[in-house]
Design a binder for these strands. Structure first.
Lengths: 335, 335
DNA sequence: GTGAAAGCGCTAACAC
DNA sequence: GTGTTAGCGCTTTCAC
C-alpha cells in the first residue's frame, strides 16, 4: 500500500515534478512522458495523498457541518441540500453531531478549525456567551442556520420566517372564524420555534382582539408525544373547549390529532388543528394537515451558496429569510 | 491568521519540540516551560494544524461514509448511530452523498482513499462489477450496510434480516386467518427490499398452500405515493378483493392506507395492512400500523464497532444479521 | 519540457 | 528537560 509520487516517478523514469504535472493536468508535459506516467499510475493503482497536497496548498476542500442531531427530517433535508451544492463545487462535508449537547458545539468549532476546513455551516440551537467568544475568534467563514443571531455576531444567518409564518397561519385560523385558539409550543430557550412562533401567534390574536385563557397554552418538547400530552392537558383543563389548535410544529400537530381521535373528537369538525413545517407525513395523515411549508432543502442550498461566496471573500450581510407559504388542506373547518 | 508551532515556540522562548510536547500532553516538560507555552497559546488563540499532524503520522482520524441520500429516516438514523460510536472513539465523519447515482459511489470510494480515511462505511444499493473491482483494490477497511454482498466480496456486511422478517409477518397474517394477501413491493434491483422481502412473503404463502393471483402483486418505488397507487391498482383490478395487504415498507403501507380511507374501506375491518420498518410515524397514524421493527440506529452502531475492530486488524467475517421483531398494533384484523 | 530543491506545519528520534 | 534535525508526500519556483 501507500505508493508515493516518488515511487511513481522512479517507475516511469521521470521526476516527481513531471508526475505532479500529469496528476494535475498541468501543461508543459510531453505526450510521451504523460502517457508513460499515466500507464504506471494505472498499473500500480496509485492514488495521490491529498493530505500532503492540502498541507502544501494550505487549504482543504472540506466544509464543516455542525448539527444537533442528524436523524430529523428538518436537518437531514437541509444537509441533503448542502451536499447538493457543496459537491457540485468540489467540496466535501465533515459532519459533526453534537447530540444536543451545547458544549460539544464549541469543541467541534475548534476541531473543524484544526482540520482547516474552508468554512462552517452551523445549525444553531441555543447560543451562550462562550459560543459567541469561540465564534468570534474562530477566524473562518461561518454561516448560521436556524437561529437569527445576526444582531449579536457578525455572521450571515439563514432562517425561516418563523414570526411571520406563525402569525399568518394564526390569522388564517381567525379568518376561518375561530375565536378560541389554543397553543401547543416548545420551551423558549429555542428562539426560532419557542419564542418567534409564539410571538406570531400571540400578535395575530391580539390584533384581532382575541384573548387567550391560560389553560389554552401548553409548552413541551419537540416530540410527537408532547403534542399528544399538550392536547390532553388543554382538553382536560379547559372549561370551554377551543375550536382550533395552533401547534408550532407538524409533529406536535400530529400528536394532538392523535389524542383528539382517541377521544372521539372529529378533526376538523369538532376541533381544527394546524402545524408548521409541511413535513413528509403531513399530507398523508387523515385529515391532511393544514400547515406552513418550509423548504429545508432549499435553506441548506442557500446557506451553502452564501458560504461559498463568503469563502471567496464576498460576505453576505445580515440574515436571509426563507420564503414560506400556507398549505391549506383538510384540518381546518370554516365556522 | 495561521499561527504555527514555530511562532509559538519563538514567543514562548522554547523550541518547537517543547511546544509539540505541551500540545500533546507529553512528558519531559518542566512546569515552567509548560506554563509559559500554555499562556502563549491562550493569548494567541493558536490552534494546531491537524493536516500537518496527519501527514506526519500517516493516518487521519476520519471515517468515510457513503450514503445514497441523507434525508431518509432509515439512513439518517443509521448515521446518527454511526456518529455516536465514532465520536466516542475519536473519529470524525467525512460524509459523501451519491444522490442515488451509482457511478458516484466509485468516485467517492476513490475520493475517500485520497483523503486517507481510516475506514469506510458504505451504504450499498446496487452493486456492479465496476464496484467490486474498485472495492477490491481500495485497500482500506470497508463495512457494507444494507445489502448482503459478503458472498461476492470479502468485506463484513451489516444487514437487516429481510427474508425472515418478511416471512414472519406474512405468516402472522396467515395466522390471523387471512388467505388472500396482496403484495406492494419495489423493483428487484434492490436485493434486500425488492427480492428478499418478496421471497419471504412468497415462501410464507406457499408453505401455507396459499396462491397469489397476478392482480395482487404490485411493484413501485419507495415513495408513499407508490403505496397509494399500488393499493389503487390492486383494488381496481381484483375480481375478488384481498383481505390483507403486505407492504414491504411502512411508507408503502401508509400510502395504501391513505387510498383505502379515501375509498371508504375500513382498516382493518375491511382490509388489513402491514408494513416493515417501524418508522416514527407508524405508531401515530390511525389505525396504528402493525409492522416489523428494524433498529437502524443500532445497525449504524454495530457497523461502526465492526469497522473500528477491522481498523485495528480484527476483521469480522461474513455478515451480521440484525435482530427484528413484529410489533402488533391495530392494522390487522383477526378473521 | 524537465528536474532539483525548498518548504508547507508538524512529530519523533537523537544528542546534549 | 530541551533543542536540533530529518523527514511525512506533495507543489512550485527556478534553472537549464
Amino acid at each position: 500500500m501507500g505508493m508515493t509520487i516518488k515511487e511513481i516517478a522512479k517507475l516511469a523514469g521521470v521526476s516527481k515534478s513531471t508526475v505532479s504535472r500529469v496528476i494535475n493536468d498541468a501543461e508543459h508535459v510531453s505526450d510521451k512522458a504523460r502517457k508513460k506516467v499515466q500507464q504506471v499510475i494505472e498499473e500500480t493503482g496509485y492514488i495521490p495523498n491529498s493530505i500532503a497536497k492540502d498541507l502544501k496548498r494550505n487549504s482543504t476542500n472540506s466544509i464543516g457541518v455542525i448539527v444537533p442531531r442528524i436523524n430529523t427530517s428538518t436537518i437531514s433535508s437541509a444537509v441533503e441540500g448542502i451536499s447538493n451544492i457543496m459537491y457540485d463545487n468540489g467540496y466535501n462535508l465533515l459532519l459533526t453531531n453534537t447530540r444536543l449537547d451545547i458544549k460539544e458545539e464549541i469543541k467541534y468549532l475548534e476541531l473543524l478549525k484544526e482540520k482547516r476546513v474552508s468554512g462552517i455551516l452551523f445549525f444553531a440551537t441555543e447560543l451562550t456567551s462562550k459560543h459567541l467568544e469561540t465564534l468570534n475568534k474562530i477566524d473562518l467563514p461561518v454561516v448560521v442556520l436556524g437561529q437569527d443571531i445576526s444582531e449579536i455576531v457578525d455572521f450571515p444567518c439563514v432562517i425561516h420566517d418563523d414570526f411571520n409564518s406563525a402569525k399568518d397561519i394564526a390569522k388564517y385560523l381567525v379568518k376561518q372564524g375561530h375565536q378560541r385558539i389554543a397553543y401547543i409550543g416548545v420551551q423558549e430557550y429555542d428562539i426560532a420555534v419557542g419564542q418567534l412562533r409564539k410571538k406570531g401567534y400571540a400578535e395575530a390574536l391580539t390584533e384581532n382582539n382575541l384573548e387567550v385563557p391560560e389553560e389554552y397554552l401548553y409548552k413541551g418538547d419537540f416530540s410527537i408525544n408532547s403534542g399528544y400530552e399538550g392536547m390532553k392537558e388543554i382538553i382536560e383543563s379547559s372549561r370551554q373547549l377551543p375550536t382550533a389548535v395552533f401547534a408550532v410544529t407538524d409533529s406536535l400537530a400530529l400528536g394532538a390529532i392523535k389524542y383528539l381521535k382517541e377521544r372521539d373528537y372529529q378533526v376538523p369538525e369538532d376541533i381544527s388543528v394546524v402545524g408548521i413545517g409541511n413535513s413528509d407525513i403531513s399530507s398523508w395523515i387523515t385529515p391532511e394537515l393544514t400547515t406552513v411549508d418550509y423548504d429545508h432543502l432549499k435553506a441548506g442550498e442557500e446557506a451553502s451558496k452564501i458560504l461559498l461566496k463568503y469563502i471567496t471573500g464576498d460576505k453576505f450581510k445580515g440574515k436571509l429569510l426563507m420564503d414560506y407559504h400556507i398549505i391549506e388542506r383538510e384540518s381546518v373547518k370554516k365556522i
